[in-house]
Every structure is written in structure tokens, then in C-alpha cells.
Amino acid sequence: MLIKLLKYEFRSTSRTFGLVYLIMMVLCTLTGLLDQASELLSAYSSIFVTLLMVTALFFFGAVVITTVLNIGRFQKGVFGDEGYLLHTLPVHVWEIIASKLIAALVWTLGTVLVMGLSLFVMILASSAISLSNVGFFFRSLIQFVSAADPTVLTQFLLSIGLMLAMLITLILQVYASISLGHLFPSHRTAWAVVIFFLLNMIQDFFFKLTVFRLTPTIYADPSGLLSFSYAFGEINMAVNELSPLTPSVFLFYLAAGALLWLCSQLVLSKRLNLE
């Protein structure tokens, strides 16, 4: 049944996301081409600047749309009118949460991926980097990876995994907030927002109490765990000393994610009250 739920989940969102992704690609291609054109004809440069700003704005917009849509799919789909259908389907509560989570995860990663891809296309179209350079970049990347110290590589993969775990926990935190907000007789959305920040504080508190106390020397900011730079055809990858950190942080997010899931699960199975 989970597969079937996912089918309808993606069906209902793919048209919007497809459109957003298409616009993103088209805007970036045009901007890139205009950059090239403006070098030849200065009249184009003002259009280029405008277009660049529009593209930047649209990138910001895409992030907002992704966030709003993912939240809406849970709030409206589970607790709104569509919930009348969802909760009368012969599916288990965990399948409902899993389908929403997987879809949200895929679309969030999709947005990030398409953003990267369209930026890449923009650079290609503007011919700031020629195709041969691109080939060189990937060749040296592969060279670097194959030559790299396996522990560095492991750390790299682990931190990507960690970011994924954090994203999943964040989505589950949103779901838990909306679900707990549903326990209130009125102003459910407002309560959900309050609960979201409360959950943030609780998470912070426990992070400091557990992970931070165990290994006080570590970085608390996982996005800074890894710095990655590309310059003059050489790749430098600097991995901070985080070997003692990652497993415990992983465990922390795993536990937090599980507890947050449980919140939604309990509300959906024991305290559902559709208006």
C-alpha cells in the first residue's frame, strides 16, 4: 500500500514541481546565453542583469515553493478535506507518514539538484567554462577521489549522510508540530508554529546535554564539517577532525527523528479529529 500511496503523492505534486524545475532550467539557460551575448553587444547587458536578478529571485522562490508545498501536502492532505479520503483508505498510519516523508525528501533533494544542475547549465551557456574544462574538472575529481585517503572519503560520505539525516529529522519535526498542533481545539496552525520552535529548543537542549557533553571539542555546526574548494584545477578537501563526532551526532538525529515520528504516529492513530 505504501507504493500506491507514493504513486498518488507524486502524481499530485509532480506537475507543480516539474513546472518549477522547467522554469529554473530555462531561466538559467537564457541568463547564460545572454551573458555571452552581452559580451558581444553591450545593449544586452542590462537585460542580462535583470534576468540574472529574476533568476536569483526565482531560486529563492523555488526554495519557498518547495517548503510551502511540502508542508501543505502534510497539513492539508492529512488534516484537511483530503484527509477524509486518506484516513478512510485501508492503509496503516505509518504508511501515511512514510509516503509523505519520502515525497518531501525527494522533492527537497530534487530542488537542490535541479538548482545545481541549472547553475551548471548557466555557466556552460555563458561559456565561462568550456566543455573541455568541465571534463577536466570531473577527471580531476575522480582522480582525487580514487587517490584520497579512505578515511577522508568515509568522512565525506558520512557528512552527506548526516545532512540527509538532519533533513529527515527537520521534515519529521514539521510533521510532529502540525500533528501536535492538531490536538488543540482551535488555532491549530498557530500552535503548530509555536510547537515547532519549542521542539527546536528541546532538541538543542538535548544536543548540548548528550553529544556536546560527550565530545566537547567538536563542531556543533555540521555544515562546516567539511570544506571543499576548487581552484586552478586542483581540488582541496579539508576534513575537520570529526571522527568522534559523526556517529554520536548520527545517533542523536536518529533518536530525535524516531521520537518525532512517534509524535505524529500517536496523534494520527489515537487523537485524530477531522473538522
Binding site: Y84, T88, L272, N273, L274
Partner: peptide
């Protein structure tokens, strides 16, 4: 009816 259809608890 909503209780029977488990839309309410």
C-alpha cells in the same frame, strides 16, 4: 458517522 469511519477519536 465520523467516529464509525475513524475520522474522529
Amino acid at each position: 458517522i465520523k467516529l464509525i469511519c475513524s475520522l474522529l477519536t
